[in-house]
Each structure stands twice: as C-alpha cells, then as structure tokens.
C-alpha cells in the first residue's frame, strides 16, 4: 500500500516589512510549520541578517571574518561590506559603543554613526542597542527621529520600556519594533497584548523570544518556539502570530566554544571553525524551531544558512 500524504493547509501568518522600496524585506508570513515547505506552496521564506557593531570586531583569531571586512576603515564602509555579503537579507547594527559601562558614546554620536551606516546600507536596517536599558531608550528615541522614513526594525522593547520605545519608534516615526521576552510563551504573548493595547499595529511587531546557544539551555528556546508556532498556526492565536526574530550571534559568540583560543584549548582545534559551527548549528536549530529571521555574524555562517534555506524551498 502506498503512503498516503495528508494535506496540511494552514493560513499564512502576518508578515512585517522592513526597509523601503525595492530593498524592503518581509519577515514572517509563513504558512507552514517551520521549514515544512513541502506542506504547501511557500508564502515567504525565513530571512538571514548579518550583525556588526559600531566598534569593529576583535578578529585576531578569525581570519575569514576579518577578510570579509578587509579594507573597510569606517563604519559606513563596514556596513557596505556587510550588506553585500552573500546571503544577507538585512543588516543589524548593534550600537555597542553606547554602553555606559564601555565607550559610553553620547546619543548624538550614535545618531551620527547610525545615519552614516544607514546611508551606506543597501539592505534593510535593523538597529540593536547596547543592552543598557536606560541608554537604549534614549538612543532609540533619537535614532527613530533621525532615521525617519527608513522603516528600521528596532531591537528590542521589553515589558519595562515598551511604552517609550514603542511610542518613539513605531507610533511617532512609523518604524518596526521587536518585543523581547525571556523564553516564555505567556510573557511573549503578554507583551504583544500590551504593545497592541498601546496602539502599535500587529504588522509593526516582531517577537524576540530570547535565545541561547545550543548546549546552553537551548531546549527552552526550542520548546518555546515550538509552542508559539503551534499556537499561531494551528490554534489561530492572534497574539502569537507575529514573526519571530532571533539574535543568534550574540548568544553563540559569547560562549566558551567560540571564545576560548586554540592556545587555551589545543584539542578543540581552530577557533574560527568552532565559532562558525556553533553559530551555524544554533541558527539551523532556531530556524527548525520557528525563527522567521536569524541574525548571524560570520560570513560563512550567513552564506551557508542562506543557502540551506534556499535548498529547503
């Protein structure tokens, strides 16, 4: 007896568009469970972003990464390199220099940097802060005004600051915003409810459900995304149907496997190869669990993940 394939038709979810004109990219809008593109004609594939910071990477042991940015002296030049990288759908600029515990750049300096970056960027732009809550709020308020009309995605608003960030980015200047919750389906949903109650349209919200590198409690990330996608697609839960974006690189490049030098861990071998695989494996696992967009750092990981998504379509 032959195998009987059952039809699995699901309603496409809403997508969030970032960037403008021909360069705009849609995030989300899937109509199948994650990567199950054989179930239905695909409405929109997952997107791959590349991140860079205003401060250049420490690429001492990462020759391939260094090569990708070879000759780029200014932030604008590095952004241009990133945007042209193979497989890149959008660019994520992290304003690490703003960190009050670090370089503590002023809001004005950051605005200037972001404007230069935006001018040089040929792909849609996504802006992440420096993980200092007070600074990010000030930063996003100023950046939203300075980048008016460019339809930027801001990462991220949390339950504590969604009002200010949501109002400044989406309501005042028509950008997009990611709501960040800490790996919990109900917290994610609550934040979506709160943001929509504030008046932010569903079409302007992306979910940043939190992340982890594989091996570091990734089961929570995976199960949370499994449940979010089941709720969105199979139970029609409108408050969980926003697209999911995952900052993979910030997680994977912060763990031992991607940081310990070969001198410290000789048996582990080449550091760059380890970092690439950590990032690639985590990114693939995120996509399989439900990320509609992943943000990566290494050009090899970006290329391979983008190609893999294409191969699955």
């Amino acid at each position: 007896m032959p195998f009987i394939k059952k039809p699995r038709t699901l309603k496409p979810l809403g997508a969030v568009s970032i960037g403008t004109g021909e360069r705009a990219v849609k995030i989300g809008g899937g109509n199948t469970l994650p990567l199950y593109f054989f179930d239905a004609k695909l409405s929109n594939p997952p997107a791959v972003g590349v991140e860079l910071t205003d401060t250049a990477w420490d690429a001492a042991e990462l020759p391939l990464l260094a090569k990708a940015y070879e000759g780029a002296a200014t932030l604008a030049e590095r952004v241009a390199c990133a945007a042209n990288m193979k497989g890149v759908d959008f660019v994520c600029l992290r304003l690490e220099g703003a960190d009050p515990g670090g370089d503590n750049l002023s809001v004005e300096e950051c605005v200037k940097l972001a404007q230069e970056a935006a001018a040089a960027c040929t792909k849609p732009l996504c802006i992440a802060g420096c993980r200092s809550e007070e600074k990010d709020v000030e930063l996003f308020k100023a950046l939203a005004a300075a980048l008016q009309g460019q339809n930027v995605l801001f990462l991220s608003a949390k339950e504590e600051d969604y009002k200010t960030i949501g109002a400044a980015t989406v309501l005042a200047y028509g950008h997009k915003v990611a709501g960040e919750s800490s790996v919990d389906i109900n917290l994610a949903k609550q934040l979506n409810v709160l943001m929509t109650q504030l008046g932010i349209p569903k079409e302007s919200i992306v979910m940043n459900l939190g992340g982890a590198a594989v091996g570091y409690g990734f089961e929570y990330v995976s199960s949370t995304m499994d449940r979010v996608k089941a709720a969105a697609l199979e139970q029609d839960d409108a408050m969980l149907q926003m697209p999911v974006i995952t900052q993979v690189a910030t997680e994977t490049w912060a763990v031992k496997e991607s940081m310990a030098s070969q001198a410290d861990m000789p048996e582990w071998g080449d550091l760059e190869q380890r970092g690439i695989q950590m990032e690639t494996v985590t990114a693939a696992a995120c996509l399989a669990s439900g990320s509609d967009a992943v943000i990566l750092r290494h050009p090899v990981a970006v290329d391979k993940i983008a190609a893999l998504v294409a191969a699955l379509i």
Binding site: G166, A167, L171
Partner: peptide, 15 residues
C-alpha cells in the same frame, strides 16, 4: 511637529 513627537512620546509612555 518636532515638538509634538518628542513630547508626545512622554504622554504615551507615561513619563
């Protein structure tokens, strides 16, 4: 409008 947006945010976020 510049004042409106900058100050309006404060009404939305409750500051």
């Amino acid at each position: 409008d510049v004042i409106l947006r900058a100050r309006g945010i404060e009404f939305v976020d409750g500051s």
